[in-house]
Design a protein around this nucleic acid. Structure first.
Lengths: 160, 160
DNA sequence: CGAAATAAGTCAACATGGCTGACGTAATTT
DNA sequence: AAATTACGTCAGCCATGTTGACTTATTTCG
């Protein structure tokens, strides 16, 4: 096989650390201007991408507790970046939507990260770009993969 | 070009989030048994990989403050996972080394992450694997790349 | 119908790991 | 001899995660 499963993959482990460290840098800076942090970014992002998201679904995506989410969600609602609407079928639900302001911020943050990602992808041909997507997808915990496919637009080409 | 620099790269942005979320999961669990957290892991990892690392260098790698590092470093030293030795040339320096215990833990944590990474790499051919390394390397802030090459064993094949 | 389960929110207390600012000490460099 | 550097430390603050307990409204199920 090409990958020695036994020999420590130090290089990729470290690249993941450094890449992620810098991947979240630009948004982090921008967010301080709004009094927000990384946690707010994540919530805003997934609500922007999935209008009408239920709170329970968001908790499952983020893998944090209801209480942790509660704090940042309240701030996002108070400052007018997210609104909640009662579910039509199930009135216990508080479906989440971004406001126009929320959408603008979400897209600005996505633009910053897209700039970085697009640059990196531009050094690869189409097949190699697909390989990157497959690699990241396969890093994800197996039971989580179907959920990621559902929530994210990412289409992962099959192995081989 | 293959990558639309304007169209938001939502798929890769989200894959990076989910992949990193799960990438740090196994070590996080293991670490609680020692009363350590993610911050200790990072310190232990880079000292294990770079014996004799200087404190200043470590600060530059982690991009945190001296005070933040001080806390976790003290705990790692107190619990016998890291030792400090006076620099031979410059006696102001406190060069960092892992103890035998430290080495064992560092390698165990690396094993967990290697398992995940190796699996993901195994779905790719050799050229695609190189593409993954190049992608991650290009995500890193340009001025940081040479430092990463120096500290990490990662050999990044040139673009094209 | 009534009981149980579910969706969501909230209060309180605590842990981790960042941060700033101010200082101190030893050693090296200029 | 003075300035700089490497490292450490005290004190306090902030963001974001945790557990545990409890409430309210609504839906589901026997």
């Amino acid at each position: 096989m090409s990958a020695d499963a036994d020999k420590p993959a130090f290089d990729v482990i470290e690249l993941l650390f450094f890449a992620y460290r810098d991947f979240v840098r630009d948004p982090d800076e921008e967010l301080t201007a709004y009094g927000f942090g990384r946690a707010h970014h994540r919530v805003l992002h997934f609500v922007d991408r999935n209008p009408g998201l239920r709170v329970t679904e968001l908790l499952d995506i983020l893998k944090i507790t209801k209480q942790s989410l509660g704090r940042v969600l309240r701030e996002l609602v108070d400052k007018g970046f997210i609104t909640q609407r009662e579910g039509a079928a199930d009135r216990r639900q508080r479906l989440l939507f971004v406001t126009e302001r929320g959408d603008r911020l979400a897209r600005e943050l996505a633009r910053l990260q897209t700039r970085r990602v697009s640059h990196a992808l531009s050094t690869l041909d189409a097949r190699e770009q697909e390989a990157v997507r497959r690699f990241l997808f396969e890093i994800i915990e197996p039971e989580e993969r179907s959920k990621v496919s559902a929530v994210s637009g990412a289409e992962i080409p099959p192995r081989r």
